[in-house]
């Protein structure tokens, strides 16, 4: 009796889970399968489309790199220290998840625009501009994707036993050496996860990027642009091209990262 009831529950839950998976896969599969090959080929060979896809993939990778450089130290502090105002800092880190991305784009434009508090001096003294540049794309991508980096890296550090760090200290390692040789390598999995999520989130960003930098075009903007200039069929071809590049990147990176990591990261 008991067994039967619980197995019924599992069927029911699996059914719901299956619907969820379908909900994700159906639209994606449908866009892929409903393509007309000539249009797909035309868009695939289009210089503008190729550039847009390259911009997306490459600038998202740069963003993830910057996010790692800036996010890992903060993640380590959050994982290891208690300080006054810590929960405030944690909330701030999560804000980009809650802010509508067009709102984020407008806010960024005020600060990084040509007359903004950061954009102004940067242009004056460094000769760098954010509006309508790759730098701007990265800034917009970074804003919306940083939380993924910080939170995953933090989880990675939290999974490292504090006693390993303590033992390393008693063996003569300074805090930085402990970080370099113990905490960082052991948290690598969390950091890589953060890197992939950040990259994926950055590639998909539309709202913040379009406001700060319509040009140089990234793929999501190219999709929008093609839709307004041509029609739905052409823009969905661009969308499918971007989708396949992302999926290949995402899946191969996951395999590479976790396949390699499984070894050392025991327990």
């Amino acid at each position: 009796m008991k067994f039967k009831r619980s197995s019924l529950m599992y069927y029911f839950f699996s059914l719901i889970g299956g619907l969820l998976i379908l909900f994700i896969l159906l639209p994606l599969l449908h866009s892929i399968l409903s393509q007309s090959p000539p249009i797909l080929l035309k868009e695939a060979t289009d210089r503008g489309v190729q550039e847009a896809i390259f911009n997306s993939v490459f600038l998202a990778a740069v963003t993830a790199m910057v996010a790692a450089l800036l996010g890992v130290p903060l993640a380590y502090i959050l994982a290891r220290r208690n300080f006054f105002g810590k929960s405030l800092v944690e909330s701030v880190v999560d804000i980009p998840l809650a802010v509508p991305h067009t709102v984020a784009g407008i806010a960024l434009l005020f600060v990084f625009g040509r007359y903004g508090v950061v954009g102004g001096p940067v242009e004056k003294y460094l000769g760098l501009r954010f509006v309508a540049t790759r730098l701007g794309v990265v800034a917009a991508m970074l804003f919306v994707s940083l939380p993924f980096m910080v939170n995953s890296a933090r989880e990675g550090f939290e999974s490292v036993d504090v006693r390993l760090e303590q033992v390393a200290r008693t063996l003569g390692a300074t805090p930085f050496e402990v970080f370099r040789r113990i905490s960082f390598p052991l948290a690598m999995r969390g950091i890589l996860t953060g890197w992939v999520l950040t990259w994926a989130r950055a590639i998909s960003e539309f709202g913040a990027v379009i406001i700060l930098a319509y040009h140089p075009m990234t793929a999501p903007i190219k999709v929008w642009d093609t839709f307004t200039q041509l029609d739905l069929r052409h823009s969905s071809a661009v969308a499918v091209l971007l989708l396949s590049v992302c999926l290949v990147g995402f899946v191969s990176f996951r395999l590479l990262a976790y396949g390699g990591m499984r070894k050392g990261n025991g327990k």
Partner: peptide, 29 residues
């Protein structure tokens, strides 16, 4: 600080560095 006291510590569950081999563990310090 602990790294300048020259005091060793053996934990109950040994706290070996899981990503290092036995030899690398021993030579860590």
């Amino acid at each position: 600080p602990p790294e300048r006291r020259n005091i060793g510590f053996m934990f109950q569950d040994y706290a070996l560095f899981p990503h290092l081999t036995v030899e690398e563990n021993i030579l860590f310090g």
